[in-house]
Design a binder for these strands. Structure first.
Lengths: 247, 247
DNA sequence: CGCGGGCTTGATTCATATCAACGATGGTGG
DNA sequence: CCACCATCGTTGATATGAATCAAGCCCGCG
């Protein structure tokens, strides 16, 4: 893995400043800053490593920071007082974390796989928005994307049955990985399922048993294959799309 | 009703510029512009009146404008190809409409009651963001609020049963009207239900029959009263909150 | 007065949750 | 290296909450 955004610890400044090789260099937030000014970003950023299951944000924490996902998969969750859990989003490389209208976060963020984050102090980011209007525009576009994906999930939870939810989720997983890896459209490609069945259930508003049954059924029908618990491959895309009900 | 934001049609400029008396003057977007500069806002805004059932935005329209709700109630909807409808949000006075990461809107906006909107051209708003950084900050905060309310709905649809959804919805209706009207905390106050039972069902991911039954049950238990089809009053707030499961 | 749209209520069905048992996998320590 | 255990996943049987199907009601309006 190339060195990610990080405050330099060593004495000498490198010719190529930190952040330059960051896998998330062209993610929306950082892409608004020109190469020559990357040290401004590096100066207010801190690199964070997380193990699976580790929580980076807890519901109720002060919302002083925002984060870029440099690598790995995380999830945004909300817990009901009686223990019910809803996963609000899965966060992959390039995702942005930390929109908040208030002083406090209203969700948890937990690593699904080993993950790297780049953390920024919210109030130190503000001046950069004014210095680099493009950065601020990108920030707004990112917010709009988060709104759109939340609303997609609202539609899924409100109006799709278990099979449709699962099929849509598999297609969603593929699409996220496809753009992360810059298009690999082989038909028999293996896609990752980084999360557990329980996580999928808590994302789709189902139970783990229903998730398992629906996956088994899709497999039995020859629409997908499940070589391992954490990977799948789409045998019959047309029927999977049909099963999803629509985009 | 006081005159809302509007491009002046008459010849003489008034001492108090248009927008000054707009009910949405202090809504997030406009509040970032000082009184003295209101004519800048007025110059790029257009006032729009809608009758119930009228659509202002159709899924697939170019996302060239953004809107402020000056008065009335509207809803954001999405239609499945087979006719299934999900209401993504209800929009009350002060709400902002039009976040889009793309060239096209991915939802419809339809008036529930007679409504007034103030429309801005997106690209003409951009320069104002740079002139008035506070406006841009407010814009970001509004986006964060939209994200948060979408995620609240995700939790509701994913993890609450019919009764909990309905109870939470009634509390939500009350809270929106309470802040719209600047706090009227009388216990027996009548709150409006501007939308039909069908709309409520399509918002909560239920059927109209279930909505009706749950309302009847809450009424029978003495938790709420339903003096008319389009108003309610909370008799036993504690039990309504308990029925909602939590915030 | 009758008609229609929106709503309520009841009977029944059906999808998914719940309860229960069993199977696979991976890590740990003897 | 193997045996054990814990965790995660699958599958089956049953229960249940909400959808569906089916009347009928209420109110405003022509």
């Amino acid at each position: 893995m190339t060195p990610p955004c990080q405050t330099p610890a060593g004495p000498a400044q490198l010719a190529e400043p930190v952040c330059f090789h960051c896998p998330a260099r062209m993610s929306d937030l950082c892409a608004g800053v020109p190469d020559g000014e990357l040290k401004l970003l590096a100066a207010i950023s801190k690199h964070i490593n997380l193990d699976p299951g580790e929580m980076q944000i807890l519901d109720g924490d002060a919302s002083d920071h925002v984060y870029n996902v440099v690598s790995g998969t995380l999830m945004m969750t909300r817990l009901g007082s009686d223990g019910r859990r809803q996963i609000l989003a899965f966060l992959l490389t390039g995702s942005f974390i930390g929109f908040s209208s208030d002083q406090l976060y209203r969700f948890n963020v937990e690593a699904v796989t080993p993950s790297e984050l780049c953390r920024f102090e919210r109030k130190k980011l503000e001046p950069l928005f004014h210095a680099y209007p493009e950065m601020e525009q990108r920030f707004r576009r990112m917010a709009a994307r988060v709104i759109e994906s939340s609303l997609d999930l609202v539609f899924t939870l409100g109006r799709r049955n278990a099979t449709e939810r699962m099929a849509a989720f598999l297609l969603h997983l593929r699409d996220m990985q496809r753009e992360e890896a810059e298009a690999k459209p082989q038909p028999g490609h293996l896609w990752q399922i980084p999360m557990t069945r329980t996580d999928i259930a808590d994302y789709l508003g189902l139970t783990i048993e229903t998730v398992s049954r629906v996956l088994s059924r899709l497999k039995a029908k020859g629409i997908i294959r499940l070589p391992t618990l954490h990977s799948f491959d789409i045998v019959d895309e047309a029927r999977l799309v049909a099963a999803a009900g629509e985009g």
